[in-house]
Simulated scan of single mutants.
Amino acid sequence: MTDAQTARGKTVNTVLGPVPADDLGVVSVHEALLSVVPGAEHAYDITIDRAEIFEILAQKLTDFRHHGGRTIVDSTGMFHGRDVRLYEALSRSTGVHIVASTGMGPEEMLGGYFLTPQTNPPTPWPAERFADLFTKEVTEGMVVPRVERRAAAGLVTTTATRGGMTPTDESLFRGAARTALNTGVAVSIRYGKDALHDLDVVLDEQLPADRVVVGGLDRKDAVAAGVPLEVARRGAFVALDHVGLDDDDAHLTDRERASLVLDLVKAGHGNRILLSSNALGVAKGQPDYDLPFSYVASTFVPFVRSLGLSDEEARRILVDNPRELLTLR
Rank of each mutant, 00 (worst) to 15 (best):
T179W: 08
P122S: 12
R129N: 02
P167D: 12
A152D: 09
R149K: 09
T159L: 13
D132W: 12
N182L: 03
V144T: 13
T168V: 10
A209P: 11
G163E: 15
G192M: 00
A176V: 07
L207I: 06
A177R: 01
P122Q: 03
L155I: 13
T158R: 02
E205N: 02
I189R: 00
T183C: 03
A127I: 05
R162Y: 10
E128Q: 12
V201E: 04
M142A: 04
T116V: 14
N120C: 09
G141Q: 00
L207W: 13
E137P: 02
V143L: 15
R149E: 05
G215E: 12
T166D: 12
A176E: 05
D132G: 03
F130G: 01
K193R: 14
R174Y: 05
V156G: 06
P121L: 13
T159P: 06
S188H: 13
D204C: 07
T123F: 07
Y191N: 06
R190I: 10
V201G: 06
T161Y: 10
N182F: 01
R129G: 06
L199T: 01
P208T: 09
A131L: 04
I189A: 05
G141P: 08
A127V: 00
T159G: 01
M142F: 00
Q206R: 15
V185F: 08
K193N: 15
K136R: 15
F173D: 09
R174W: 00
T183M: 00
Q118F: 15
T166R: 07
R211A: 09
G112K: 08
E148V: 13
T139V: 11
P122V: 07
D169Q: 13
L199C: 12
P124A: 06
G175T: 02
Y113D: 12
T159V: 15
V201P: 00
T139I: 12
R129A: 09
S171A: 14
T116A: 05
P121T: 05
E205T: 00
N182M: 08
V201L: 09
P167T: 04
D169K: 06
L133D: 04
A160Q: 10
E170Y: 08
G184Q: 04
R211L: 10
G175P: 08
E170G: 04
T183V: 07
T135Q: 10
N182R: 14
S171H: 01
E170K: 08
R178G: 03
V156M: 03
E137Y: 05
Q206L: 12
A180K: 06
D198E: 04
Q206K: 15
G184S: 06
L155D: 06
V201Y: 09
D210K: 07
T179N: 08
R211I: 02
A209E: 11
Y191E: 13
N120K: 04
E148K: 13
P208V: 11
D204M: 05
L115K: 14
N120D: 14
E128A: 14
L196K: 11
L207H: 14
T123S: 11
R129P: 01
V214P: 11
S171R: 01
L207P: 13
T161S: 14
L203Y: 03
A160Y: 09
Y191F: 15
P126I: 11
V201Q: 00
F114M: 11
L115P: 02
G215P: 09
V185E: 01
V147W: 11
A180T: 01
A176H: 02
T166K: 04
G192T: 01
G215T: 10
P121S: 07
E137I: 03
V214G: 09
V143G: 11
